[in-house]
Amino acid sequence: MDTTTDPAGSTASPADTFAIGGELTVRRLGFGTGGLVGTGYWGPRHDDPEHAVALLRRAVARGVTLIDTADNYGPDVAEELVARALHPYPESLVIATKGGVVRTGPDVWHIAGRPEQLRAMCEASLRRLRTDTIDLYQLHRLDPDVPMADQLGTLQELQQEGKIRHIGLDSVDAAELRQAQEIAAVASVQNRYNLLDRASEDVLELCEQRGTAFLPWFPLGHGALTGGTGAALAEVAARHGATNGQIALAWLLHRSPVLLPTPGTGSPAHLDENLAAAGIALTEEDVTQLAGPA
C-alpha cells in the first residue's frame, strides 16, 4: 500500500491523507492556531510566547503537515508564532492562512474585500510568515460590497505572481461555491461543520463531487463536543476507551475523505489527545448511533 512519510518518520495510509489542489498532500488531521491566541482570537494567549512555539513544534514532530492560521488571529500574532516556531518550513508542511477581514477590537470585525485591501493583506501575511509563497490563501469572508469576480481575480493575480499557490474560501454556501468555481480554481472551503452543526451538508457534497478540501471550523463545536454532550457520543466514546472529543474528530474523518479538521488548542496534552483521534476506527454501529443527536 502506498504511504506518506511525515517529518517524524511515521507513515500514513492514503485514507489518512488528502491532496489539496491535487498536489499538496497533507495528513487530514491538522492543527489550527486559534488556540494560540487570546479569548476571541484577540491578543496573545500566554505571556510567554515560547509556550506556543513549543506547541507548534510538537504538532509537527507528531506528524501534523497542515497548519491553519489567519492574519486576524491576534491580529498578526498567530502568523508570527507560526514563523517563529517552524521557519524554515519543512518541505512536507503546508501553511494555510486567511485574509479579507480586518479586526479593530476583540469583537469588531470588518470585511475588507477590495482588491487593494486583499493584496496588502496577502503581502503582509507573506512578511509575517517569512515566505515567498503561501500554500493556501483563503478568503476569510466574501465581501458583499465587492463583486466576487474582483475578489477572486485579485487572488488569481497573486497566484500568477507566485505569491499564493492555491485559493480557498471561508463561510460560503453552495450557490456561492458554484459561482466561485466558475471564476477560479477553488482548492478548499472552510465552513463550520461538526457533529452538532451539519448545516453545510450541501457544501460538503459539492466538495466531494469536485475534489475540494473541506476544512471544518469549530470541529469540536467550540468546546461543546469535549464535554458531556449527549448520551450517544458518550456511549461510543466509552466503547472505544476514548474521549468525547476524540470521537467527534474521528466522526469527521470517517464522514468524508475531503474533510480536513484542524482543531486548535493551547495544551500539549490536548494536542496529543486530538491527534490520537486519527487512530480510532469507527464501526457502522458507531456511525449509526452518532447519526442522531450527538
Rank of each mutant, 00 (worst) to 15 (best):
M121W: 01
A12H: 15
S188D: 06
P268R: 08
T25H: 05
P90R: 13
V203H: 09
H140R: 05
E50P: 00
E123A: 02
D132V: 01
Q117N: 11
L139T: 04
A174D: 14
G32T: 09
P261C: 06
E182Y: 05
A187T: 11
W42V: 10
A52S: 15
V82A: 09
F31N: 05
F31G: 07
A78T: 03
E235R: 13
D2L: 13
R210C: 02
A52V: 02
T11V: 12
I20P: 12
L249C: 06
G228P: 04
D286A: 07
R130K: 15
A291W: 08
A187R: 04
Q151L: 06
P216L: 03
R103D: 08
P88K: 05
E284V: 11
L118F: 09
I20F: 04
P106K: 10
F218I: 00
L271M: 08
R103S: 10
R119V: 11
Y193F: 15
A120G: 10
H140D: 09
T65V: 09
L225A: 05
Y73F: 14
A19R: 09
E205V: 07
A96S: 15
A278N: 02
C207F: 11
W109H: 15
G266Q: 03
S125P: 07
S10K: 08
G43I: 08
M121Y: 12
P7E: 04
S10R: 14
